[in-house]
Each structure stands twice: as structure tokens, then as C-alpha cells.
Design a protein around this nucleic acid. Structure first.
Lengths: 362, 362
DNA sequence: CTGAAAGCGCTTACAG
DNA sequence: CTGAAAGCGCTTACAG
């Protein structure tokens, strides 16, 4: 007979120094589906059916309700290990991102993990992003067997390594066309960059440059394309552009060169907040004031956007929502549905790093 | 910093799944311990003993080697669900932190998750940090059954909710005395703050103030205490201090007040990089140059430390190592060992936000 | 509509 | 030193 009780009952149990249960399964054992079945006066099979919501047309409503009540009274929670063993699933999803230390991907992960937790699944991060190209088996090195994969912002080259795993794949922030993904979830980055361009145009800026990320992925290509198109359509095309690695210091070096052009640009649109922070750094070194002499915009709305002075005007990407939506899509695929492609809205967050275009010659 | 998505070529890598699929449910079924046993000519029990490294004195060395070889040849990896079901463990560890969005805790989590993965365990984050005080059962709301708990930088009040769970507990960045933790892992924060103080004293600063975190936890109390003691011992005690919430904007407001004192302080030691960024903001608004007029130091070495201009001199805390060491300690507890208390070294990273004390009257 | 039974892959007493 | 056997808690055909 299984008991359930609070920790206080532990005091009565003998605790050897080298414990009887080295696995840490302390305390009285939890109620099982057998206990629920007994209490509800049904079989274990009925309990399983009802609790997994597969009972319609197979169990009578009153019995289903009785099962639910018994489960509630007992505080029953299914043993995930048993369920997985029986069902063949592993309960773990691999999240592949290009850089683990990046705050954006940390937020994507948080969003995905939260949704996974609701379903008793867990998320493992791909542990060595550097090795994703030549690694013969990225999945084995993940240290777990997998039910599916979510990949974010990957280069198409790196994506090849993800195929052939035969696992359901959901792509985030990636080309919705031509992938073998079962579903995609994308922030509307083109619209975001258009917002940034319009924001600067409205402030009177006419000499705008683009500090692009030196990363060959769909998301950054789209950013550059959308910005250039928007400005050109307004009759004030980009007057310059350059690429920098996603690193504040590297970006500062490249931005300094961009700012050396004459007439000097009055605004720089950056693909990413990290690049924008680099641009601000460059401005400061060059003796330019932000925003009086130079306006700067970023993308992401990371913590550093409000940490720098002035704070960054930026395009907020819904990182957590992307992770959550991606996980939800993957769960749908696992359930046999075809979720398709989703686009999430983004918004411009105006802050201190942008202002009216300086008047007079540059 | 890692470059996003920039992976080496993977040409030559076979795209077709070869042999037994390492990925689990899809494709041909994975080899089981039974397959290994068959191939090695032993029983399943022997395989289990050998592969879990519990074979000494129970299995002859040649047979043990044969088992290992068979497992290698087959690409055998144990089914975690089966192992957990049998052993009673759940394979999941709860990590409780005060703020999920904080980069420091994200790094602690990464370190813990990496070590956990090596052992086939997974880490769940406490999902609602706000609720940790009054929550009647934080464990149930974690959405999973647990083998143990790691808690970082928690207020003692919040800690009470963690007791009574009856689960093995490892504390990070917390008071090593008087807790019911089985083990603690702490960065040497007092030494870190002493370093900051010495660094400024050596640069000639005599009017130093402390911008403290308005958070009532052991780690921040220790920081203030160590700094005050170090400066007092040198004959140049703190000339002021104030507390601010861990938020750049809030810190800037408080720092402005600190900097209004006359004679003006020449250096501000901050409990955290976020506070230091706020202090830099305040300096800029006040018209003070960093570091010419004011030196600023932080603690953590977050990404923002190098994103701001000038970059922050800071005390680097080994966040990943703490998470990893904490997980290792917890695994030892689970194995029946008593790991005790560990202190991890910290180091001062001098950057542009500190310089020689300004000469002349403040 | 419902229950009895088999079995997922592993670990652990237990008997040799 | 080694193997046969039981069983962890669940889900799923299958037989009523």
C-alpha cells in the first residue's frame, strides 16, 4: 500500500549513513496508477486512458470522473520513467543554437523549457556548437536519446548535419522555404528592420549606414535586405554598410571605419544589439555624441540595450515566445499534426540612442 | 565570443543513417543490455555491473573487458527511462535561483546542466521565483519529481521553503554555516571585494564609496563587510554607501545621490556589474568622466561589462564552475558521500573603468 | 464499454 | 565469480 505524506514522516524512517536508496528516492513512495485504479474501483488500463485523455468512447463519463477524482485525492502524478519506457519516447528534446552564451538563445531556451515542462518533457542544449559541422554524430554527443530537435538561427551548412537523424525538426528564426523542417517559427525580422528604417527617416536622417552581422544565415540576410529595400523605396538608400562579428569590440573597430566616411553618416542601423553597443563605443572613441551626432539602433532588446548610456533604440525580438512556440510546434508534430509555419510580430522600442538628424553639413 | 552558425564544412559526412540509430524511437531499435550480454557471452546482470562500474570483485577482468568491448562495438547506450524506473530515481535536479533572466544564473545553470548531462541527469529550473516564499509546495509546481535540489544565492527566508522537502540540498553562493545543506559551493566573494579595494587604493584613491545591492542575502552582506574591512584596515575607510535594486536604471538614480557628496568620491565599488553600469550612467549624466573623474568597479563579469564604454573593471565570478561544482557535489551526496564545503577562487579583471585617482580637490 | 495480461529495458537480491 | 528471475509503473493490444 502506498502512502503519501509530508516530509515530517521521514523522521520515523531509519536513515543509514550510506543510505538504503542511493538514488535519492527519499520519503514514502508515491501513489501509482494501481492505487488510483483501486480507489476508483476500475482497472489500471482505465486509469491510463482517462488520465491521458484518450477515454472518449472507451470509458463511461461517470467512471472517468471517478478516476479523475481518485487521482486528485491521492495526489497522483504519473511516473515519467515508466511512461517513457513503455511508450518508447525519451522525453527529451534537443535544442541546437549557434552560441550557448548568448542571451537571446538563453531566452529561447527558457521559453522552450517552460513549455516542455508543462508536458513533462525536458530540453537539452547542444553542448558543442563549434563541433556541429564536422561532428559525425551530433545527436550521440548530446548525451541523451531524443524525441525531436529544435534548431535556431542556423547556417544552412550546419543544418545538413541535423538531417538524416530522422527526427522531427522545428526551425526557429530560419528560412521557411526549402528546409526539411516539419515547422518553422520566425520573428518578423524584415518588418523589424523596416521599422528601424522608418523611425530614422521620420527623424530626418538621410545618410544611414548598415552595420551587418558577419554571419551567413537567413535571418541576417533578411535583415539587410529589408532595410535596404525600405530605405531605397523612401528615396534615401543606404550610404554604406559593413559586416562585423557579433562581438562588441570587433563591431567597434568596424563601426569606426564606417563613421570615417565623408559626409559622415548620421545614423547606423545594426543587425543586433551587440553590434549597436560596438557602434556606440566607436562613436564615443571618435568623439561623436549619441544621439546628437549619431543615431544608433539595434535588434534583440537584450539586457545590454538598457545597460549602456544612452539606452539603445532597438527592435525587440520575442525570444521566449519563439522558444515556446517552437516547442509547441514540435509537440504537435510528435502528436501527428502538421503545424506549418508561424511568424511572430516584433516591435520597435525607441530609446535614447536615436534622435533627430543633426542639421548642417556632416 | 562564439560566432553564430559559422560552422566548418561537413562535406564527407555520411547523411544516411548508418547502423543502429543513436536517436532513439525512429529507425531500427537501439541495442539493449541484452544484446550486449549476448555478444559478450555473459548475462545481462554482468553487463549492468560492468557498465555501471560496480564490477570489481564481482566480475573477472577479462569478462569485464569483453563486456565493454561489446558495448562499444554495438554503440550501446543504456535506456535512461528503464534505469530510472528500476532504480527509483527520477534523473532530475531542481535548480532554484532568484532570477531566471539574469546572465549570472544562466551561466550557473549552464554549468550545472553540462555536468548533469554527463551523468544522464537533467536540470529543471524553478519556474516561478517570485512565488518561492509563500509557495506551499515549490517542488510539486516544478512539474517533475526530483532527486535533489541546488539553490543559489537565496535569501534565508526563501530557503525555509526548500527545507522539509527531504531532498538532498546543495547551496551555491550562500552562507556555509547554519544551513541544512549537504554541501555548499561558494565563490570567494570576500577576497574579490578585497581585490577591488586594493586595486583602487593602489591607484591612489582615498575617497571610495560602496554601491551595494539592496538584497538581503549572505553573498551581498559578505561583499559589503569584506570591502569595508579592507579599506578600514588600510586607513582609508569607506566615505559613503547606499543600496540599490539590481537594475541599471534604479542603480543610476542611487549612484547620482552618492556622487553628489562633497568632497566628491573618486571611486565607487559596486556589488554587481549591473550596479556598476548604473554608476557609469550616473557619472555620465552628472558630467563626470570615467575613469578620469571617477573609477567604477563591478562584480560578476557579465557580457555587459565589456559592452559598456569604458569597459568595466570587475571581479569575475566563476558562474559555470559554480554550477558544475554544485551539481558534482549533489551527485556525490546522491552516491552517499559527504562533499562538504568548497570555495572557488575569483579574480579581478582590470579594464577601462578604473584609473589613477584624480589629483587636486574634489 | 471494461479488465487481464504482456512487456518496455534495466537493476538487484538471490541461488548456484 | 556468474546467471536466472523478479519487478519498477506504465501503456497497449487483446479478449470479453
Amino acid at each position: 500500500m502506498n502512502r503519501r505524506g509530508d516530509a515530517a514522516t521521514d523522521e520515523g524512517t531509519p536513515t543509514e549513513p550510506v543510505g538504503p536508496s542511493p538514488t535519492g528516492a527519499a520519503g514514502p513512495s508515491r501513489p501509482t496508477s494501481r492505487d488510483v485504479a483501486e480507489r476508483a474501483g476500475v482497472s489500471q488500463a482505465t486509469v491510463s486512458l482517462v488520465l491521458r485523455d484518450r477515454w472518449r468512447g472507451r470509458v463511461s463519463p461517470p467512471r472517468a470522473e471517478a478516476v479523475r477524482e481518485a487521482a486528485r485525492e491521492l495526489g497522483y502524478r504519473p511516473n515519467l520513467a515508466a511512461r517513457r519506457l513503455r511508450s518508447g519516447g525519451t522525453g527529451t528534446i534537443l535544442l541546437v543554437v549557434p552560441a550557448l552564451t548568448n542571451e537571446f538563445f538563453a531566452r529561447v531556451h527558457a521559453g522552450a523549457a517552460a513549455v516542455a515542462a508543462e508536458r513533462g518533457m525536458s530540453v537539452v542544449l547542444f553542448p558543442s556548437p563549434e563541433g556541429i559541422g564536422p561532428a559525425p554524430d551530433p545527436f550521440a554527443s548530446a548525451g541523451a536519446t531524443l524525441d525531436g530537435v529544435i534548431a535556431s538561427s542556423m547556417a544552412s551548412r550546419a543544418l545538413r548535419a541535423l538531417r538524416g537523424g530522422g527526427l522531427p525538426l522545428v526551425m526557429l528564426d530560419s528560412d521557411p522555404e526549402g528546409t526539411e523542417a516539419a515547422a518553422t517559427v520566425n520573428p518578423d525580422v524584415p518588418e523589424g528592420l523596416r521599422w528601424a528604417g522608418r523611425h530614422l527617416l521620420a527623424a530626418g536622417h538621410r545618410r544611414i549606414v548598415h552595420l551587418a552581422a558577419d554571419v551567413d544565415t537567413w535571418t541576417f540576410r533578411e535583415r539587410g535586405r529589408a532595410l535596404a529595400a525600405e530605405l531605397a523605396a523612401a528615396g534615401h538608400p543606404l550610404v554604406g554598410s559593413a559586416r562585423a562579428a557579433l562581438d562588441v569590440r570587433a563591431a567597434a573597430v568596424v563601426a569606426e571605419a564606417l563613421l570615417a566616411a565623408r559626409p559622415r553618416p548620421t545614423a547606423v542601423v545594426c543587425d543586433d544589439d551587440v553590434l549597436a553597443a560596438g557602434a556606440c563605443k566607436a562613436a564615443r572613441r571618435t568623439g561623436l555624441r549619441v544621439p546628437e551626432d549619431l543615431s544608433v539602433t539595434g535588434v534583440d532588446d537584450l539586457a545590454l540595450a538598457t545597460a549602456v548610456e544612452p539606452e539603445l533604440t532597438t527592435v525587440r525580438l520575442p525570444a521566449e515566445e519563439m522558444g515556446g512556440a517552437g516547442m509547441r510546434a514540435l509537440l504537435e508534430v510528435l502528436d501527428g499534426d502538421a503545424p506549418g509555419n508561424r511568424v511572430l510580430p516584433v516591435r520597435l522600442v525607441p530609446r535614447g540612442s536615436t534622435g533627430p538628424a543633426p542639421t548642417g553639413p556632416g
